[in-house]
Design a protein around this nucleic acid. Structure first.
Lengths: 253, 253
DNA sequence: CCCGCTTCTTGATCAGGATCATTCCGGAAG
DNA sequence: CTTCCGGAATGATCCTGATCAAGAAGCGGG
């Protein structure tokens, strides 16, 4: 599993960490870092965490990590790659709920219904840490730090979910989307101004509740205004300040 | 506090419970019922719950229960009345995040930022159970049922938050809004087909990301189609099935 | 290298809902 | 009763972004 045949020369230097051997380095950027590090490496509690973590993957682009209706047993931290979550209503229309980068957690919205309310689909080759939820909440009972962490993760996601709901112009949405992605990449140790959009224009549009044509147009205009540089799915935020100003109503208040 | 001068003859027979004396009856419909009842009345654990619950109120229409930026110390279960939560962006535009009926819980989205990210404003005379959050999470550590309950509440709210985000027509939004309110009233023991809208058309519109004129027009049309009866803020769902059909894309998938 | 597919871009037109403006209604105060 | 005022209903117009349509560009496979 260390080095497989697909180890070609992918042109992504700021690529997500896919190195299974470097658990410590990965864990520092993971959303569970707070919980994991709180217990301290070497202590017996860490054993408990390790017992309930299971590395799964790799998944290839388009693979499902879980599907709508699957019984809820675990949450997943993204180790490598990117994932989108989406739901499909009965007339078959897809609805993208979110994109998740390395270090972020998916599956939290399945706790209440006790089954996954959405699909999770890998956008790139992806790997995960799988946390058994029953084991996790049992652990949380014994370790306040873990419980606190779960509460925070849930509450945080709650905050971001309500942002998309506002009525905002296409410009605001796209600008905020780019800023948000940049900040999240930066928080995980990648470049926050230069990265690849791992999702299609259609997925972006769907997520932002716009038509893909509109996304194209806005991106093109942003480029002509010097706010971004764009080449296929590679994007550079040339004027993060300006973008932030445009999207600010979605970003902080 | 029991009977003050404003005890006029308000025409709302299906009024929320405002009777301080009937704790048991109220608690059965409260969102914490599962947690509270799980420990069983009379057991020592109940003492713990009672210690961290504090009844607050009454608040008058327009009063703030908490404000954006207030330090987060507690979550609130609505005992009586209705509340809206909303945030105000820097250009002063209000954004209604949700309406909360008796038995529902507000403040969960403050856990992560550790301060309230929104205002909570009473729409009617309102009272609350205030749960100290540090005490609550300490209790959750000792009582898995409470912890489980908090996780579920958070996860549930996460689910509803993502529904509004979809791109839906004005008709769908209004129909789903009415159905949702009805179902929530029904779940708390009130009539699910005949109730008063405690919020203004403007608030509804804001919540649904529509203009208030649009809400007016849709309601008028629904009435002329026989889907609802409407008189001021009193509404009756004459054809809940039909409404549900219209709004179904927002209601379950 | 060409083919066929998907994704992306760009243009032209259309429509749903926002906005502006006016009127109507119901309750509170005088 | 009249006046006043905010919320609500209704009409007229405008604008953003969706939709329809067509072409360009990337990409994997033969």
């Amino acid at each position: 599993m260390r080095s497989d045949t697909r180890a070609g020369r992918l042109p992504d230097p700021p690529s997500p960490i896919a190195d299974d051997g470097d658990a410590v380095r990965f864990c520092r950027t993971c959303a569970f870092a707070g919980a994991c590090l709180a217990v301290g490496y070497g202590k017996p509690e860490l054993e408990a965490l390790h017992c309930l973590v299971e590395h799964v993957g790799p998944y290839r682009p388009g693979d499902h990590v879980f599907r709508t209706g699957d019984p809820f047993r675990a949450i997943f931290a993204v180790r490598a790659g990117t994932v989108k979550t989406s739901l499909v209503d009965r007339d078959g229309r897809e609805q993208v709920l979110g994109f998740y980068l390395p270090g972020e957690v998916i599956g939290l919205n399945a706790i209440y219904p006790e089954q996954f309310p959405c699909d999770a689909i890998a956008l790139e080759n992806a790997q995960f840490c799988r946390f058994s939820f029953p084991a996790m909440s049992a652990l949380a009972t014994r370790m306040p730090a873990v419980q606190q962490h779960l509460f925070r993760l849930l509450s945080k996601e709650l905050g971001t979910a309500s942002l998309l709901a506002g009525d905002h112009s296409a410009d605001e949405r796209v600008a905020a989307f780019l800023c948000d992605l940049g900040e999240r990449y930066a928080a995980r140790g990648f470049s926050g101004t230069r990265f690849a959009l791992s999702m299609s224009r259609g997925d972006i549009a769907n997520y932002l509740r716009l038509a893909s044509e509109t996304v194209s147009r806005v991106l093109t205009r942003f480029r002509s205004q010097g706010l971004i540089a764009l080449e296929g799915r590679q994007v550079e935020l040339c004027d993060p300040q300006g973008l932030r100003r445009i999207g600010e109503s979605l970003l902080s208040g």
